[in-house]
Design a binder for these strands. Structure first.
Lengths: 156, 156
DNA sequence: CCAAGATATTTTAAGCTTAAAATTTCAGCC
DNA sequence: GGCTGAAATTTTAAGCTTAAAATATCTTGG
């Protein structure tokens, strides 16, 4: 049987590499589509996607923690989206340090369009997965995620 | 039932986002470990890992296509690994354009150490997955990968 | 009030990434 | 031999990313 700890560890490593390959392949395809068909990038899409979930906008720091990227990172991306009038910065009454980033109506319209295409691309790329596959995969990922959540608590 | 095409598409999108979250979480942990415990980075590890599979080394272009990154990218990474004497560039007899990058003995030793720790980190991070989970997941990913392989053929 | 520490954000420096341009060398053909 | 296009690599320009430093503002305790 292939169930000693040694082979389990090797099997986990092989699956990890395959997982990475699949995710990188799909992500690459999304990036290509965003670039070639919509003249934008994944980080910009991610920021717009986050802001679309919060119609009243998000403080810069909340946006960066939601996206799990650094503060300085969102500063740069929001700068550019703001230049293009897809996002606007709104001062927070009573706190001159903070700013709220929110989609403009132009930004909302642009995001709706992107989001529809994005869902279609994913649908095609994951075409091989049935509803049953998705449920199994979702459960599996859930267990992996709760593992990393434990790790985060340990680090904090 | 939840099996109309609409909900299948939404389910695929949700699973994709969860997949991304899991993979990014694990990858982030690997990057942190490489940085904090070994003063190195994932791209450097990836290059060394590729070279470790080919004891005779790889041409720069073969290295970049193996890793699926641009030529210019590996140039920069190999430059730095070379400065640290972990990698060396060897001229190709009969073709003055080409160079072969290969691990030095110092590089090999360094990589062995990293690879052992790397396998341990993955083992811990995927601790929740049994051999059976791994087999199911591997099959699922295989189907996703063959989908993207078809796509690549279509593009070429 | 005000000093000191905390908080929100931006700036900076360094590294990774890509596509495209530039450079060097090769291979084939006349 | 020499020209032309292909091939291997590096360079360049632009964007993303982070951690750490810098700035500005707020809050709290004295």
């Amino acid at each position: 049987m292939t169930s000693d700890p040694e082979s389990l560890s090797k099997a986990r490593l092989r699956v990890w590499l395959k997982l990475l390959k699949a995710v990188n392949g799909i992500e690459g395809e999304i990036r290509r589509n965003l670039r070639d068909r919509h003249r934008t990038t994944l980080p910009r899409f991610d920021v717009m996607s986050a802001l679309a979930r919060f119609p009243d906008g998000l403080k810069m720091s909340d946006l960066s923690s939601f996206l799990k990227v650094s503060n300085g990172n969102v500063t740069g991306i929001v700068d550019k989206l703001t230049e293009e009038e897809l996002v606007q910065r709104v001062p927070v009454p009573g706190d001159k340090r903070a700013q709220i980033a929110r989609l403009t109506s132009k930004g909302k319209a642009e995001f709706e369009k992107l989001a529809g295409h994005h869902e279609g691309w994913i649908d095609t790329l994951l075409d091989a997965l049935s509803m049953e596959d998705l449920e199994t995969l979702s459960d599996t990922l859930e267990r992996v995620l709760s593992q990393s959540t434990e790790k985060e608590r340990a680090d904090a």
